Measured scan of single mutants.
Amino acid sequence: KYLVLALYDYQEKSPREVTMKKGDILTLLNSTNKDWWKVEVNGRQGFVPAAYVKYL
């Protein structure tokens, strides 16, 4: 498993997404889509914009 760092705040806009705050450390679950990565944060799984996170 990889960890990624939230570069920006992101507010979920659909039930498939998750909210994150700048500085959050997220567990990367799937990065096959170049635009949306599946992550786990605070016990929830969902998608965030790939451009908003970077590998640690």
Results as ranks from 00 to 15, higher is better:
Lys1Pro: 15
Lys1Glu: 11
Lys1Met: 13
Lys1Tyr: 14
Leu3Thr: 09
Val4Leu: 15
Val4Pro: 01
Val4Ala: 10
Val4Lys: 01
Leu5Phe: 09
Leu5Arg: 09
Leu5Ile: 15
Leu5Cys: 09
Ala6Trp: 04
Ala6Thr: 04
Ala6Met: 03
Leu7Ser: 04
Tyr8Phe: 14
Tyr8Pro: 01
Tyr8Glu: 12
Tyr8Cys: 12
Asp9Val: 02
Asp9Gly: 06
Asp9Thr: 05
Asp9Trp: 02
Tyr10Met: 01
Gln11Leu: 13
Gln11Met: 14
Glu12His: 09
Glu12Gly: 15
Glu12Trp: 05
Lys13Gly: 08
Lys13Asp: 06
Lys13Met: 13
Ser14Leu: 09
Ser14Cys: 10
Ser14Glu: 09
Pro15Asn: 12
Arg16Ser: 14
Val18Arg: 02
Val18Asn: 04
Val18Ala: 05
Thr19His: 05
Thr19Phe: 04
Thr19Gly: 10
Thr19Glu: 04
Met20Phe: 10
Met20Ile: 15
Met20Ala: 02
Lys21Asn: 10
Lys21Cys: 10
Lys21Phe: 10
Lys21Gln: 10
Lys21Val: 09
Lys21Met: 10
Lys22Val: 08
Lys22Ser: 07
Lys22His: 06
Lys22Met: 08
Gly23Pro: 00
Gly23Ala: 03
Gly23Ser: 04
Asp24Ser: 07
Asp24Glu: 11
Ile25Gln: 06
Ile25Thr: 08
Ile25Phe: 06
Leu26Gly: 09
Leu26Phe: 06
Leu26Tyr: 09
Thr27Gly: 07
Thr27Asn: 10
Leu28Arg: 01
Leu28Val: 10
Leu29Asp: 01
Leu29Thr: 05
Leu29Pro: 00
Leu29Arg: 04
Leu29Phe: 05
Asn30Asp: 15
Asn30Val: 08
Ser31His: 10
Ser31Ile: 10
Ser31Cys: 13
Ser31Asp: 14
Thr32Glu: 14
Asn33Tyr: 08
Lys34Ile: 09
Lys34His: 11
Lys34Trp: 07
Asp35Arg: 12
Asp35Asn: 12
Trp36Glu: 04
Trp36Tyr: 08
Trp37Met: 05
Trp37Ala: 06
Trp37Ser: 04
Lys38Tyr: 15
Lys38Glu: 14
Lys38Leu: 15
Lys38Val: 13
Lys38His: 13
Val39Arg: 00
Val39Phe: 00
Val39Asn: 01
Glu40Lys: 07
Glu40Pro: 01
Val41Leu: 15
Val41Lys: 13
Val41Cys: 10
Gly43Met: 05
Gly43Tyr: 05
Arg44Pro: 01
Arg44Cys: 06
Arg44His: 08
Gln45Asn: 08
Gln45Val: 14
Gln45Met: 11
Gly46Glu: 01
Gly46Arg: 02
Gly46Ile: 03
Phe47Trp: 15
Phe47Arg: 03
Val48Lys: 00
Val48Thr: 01
Pro49Tyr: 02
Pro49Trp: 03
Pro49Leu: 03
Pro49Ser: 02
Pro49Val: 03
Ala50Thr: 06
Ala50His: 04
Ala51Thr: 11
Ala51Trp: 08
Ala51Met: 13
Tyr52Met: 14
Tyr52Gly: 09
Val53Gln: 00
Val53Arg: 00
Val53Ala: 02
Val53Glu: 00
Lys54Cys: 15
Lys54Phe: 09
Lys54Trp: 09
Tyr55Lys: 13
Tyr55Thr: 13
Tyr55Gly: 09
Tyr55Val: 15
Leu56Cys: 11
Leu56Ser: 07
Leu56Tyr: 13
